[in-house]
């Protein structure tokens, strides 16, 4: 929760800077791409060098894979259902916005680079909200909608940011499922987004 708030504050500081320095400023897009590449390199490195994750992946059974699969199906289906509410967005646009699964840094930049800043900002906020809602509502979700619900809500964040709270409210026996689900979605987001953006452009 605190980390998400810090990121939102930094984003707001960036907006203020952008408003005041507009016109005098360097082109931020190239730098943005460099920093995103660096971020993803470090994410890949941390996942790759974590022997615990690799052991979990080797030992997991087919049932665990069904959790991220059901999250993907549920997210994309709900995006299709809700799409008619937004007149200016196509069904594919809403599907693209939802398919960050909470991985806001990559979703915001990738969508923004292909579809413009408006869509990029929308993708960023959609995925930040997914994480925030999960953090805030996990106790209620776990209690009333089942112990797998916080993992489903967290999406890609269930392997890092929301993992402690998921473990606390769903139980330690769900930790493996949460990590594998979050890891699968984290690694899948760039490919899924690139595929959907390719269809859109």
């Amino acid at each position: 929760m605190r980390d998400s708030l810090i990121l939102i504050i930094l984003f707001s500081i960036g907006i203020v800077l952008g408003m005041n320095l507009s016109g005098h400023l360097f082109e931020p897009d190239t730098l943005l791409l460099c920093v995103l590449s660096l971020t993803l390199f470090t994410v890949g490195y941390e996942v790759g060098c974590n022997r615990h994750y690799m052991k979990m992946i080797r030992e997991m059974n087919i049932q665990v894979v069904l959790v991220p699969l059901s999250i993907i199906i549920g997210t994309l289906a709900s995006a299709v259902v809700i799409a008619p509410l937004f007149r200016e967005l196509s069904i594919l646009d809403v599907v693209i916005l939802a398919s960050g699964f909470g991985y806001y840094s990559i979703a915001g930049v990738l969508v923004g680079s292909k579809l413009g800043l408006y869509m990029g900002s929308l993708a960023l906020l959609t995925n930040v909200f997914r994480e925030l809602i999960t953090v805030v509502l996990t106790p209620l979700l776990s209690r009333y909608l089942g112990r797998l619900s916080p993992i489903a809500a967290g999406g890609a964040t269930s392997m890092d940011v929301t993992l402690p709270i998921i473990t606390k409210y769903s139980g330690k026996e769900y930790t493996l499922t949460a990590v594998v689900s979050g890891l699968t979605l984290t690694l899948l987001v760039p490919f899924l987004l690139s595929m959907l953006l390719h269809l859109r452009v």
Partner: peptide, 26 residues
């Protein structure tokens, strides 16, 4: 933007919870 983002993320969460719970018993 904020309102739209909130609606889409809430719908995504509900959708994924529904499908995951359907598969939960299996």
């Amino acid at each position: 933007l904020g309102v739209r983002a909130l609606l889409i993320s809430a719908a995504s969460i509900l959708g994924s919870i529904a499908v995951t719970n359907l598969l939960g018993n299996v």
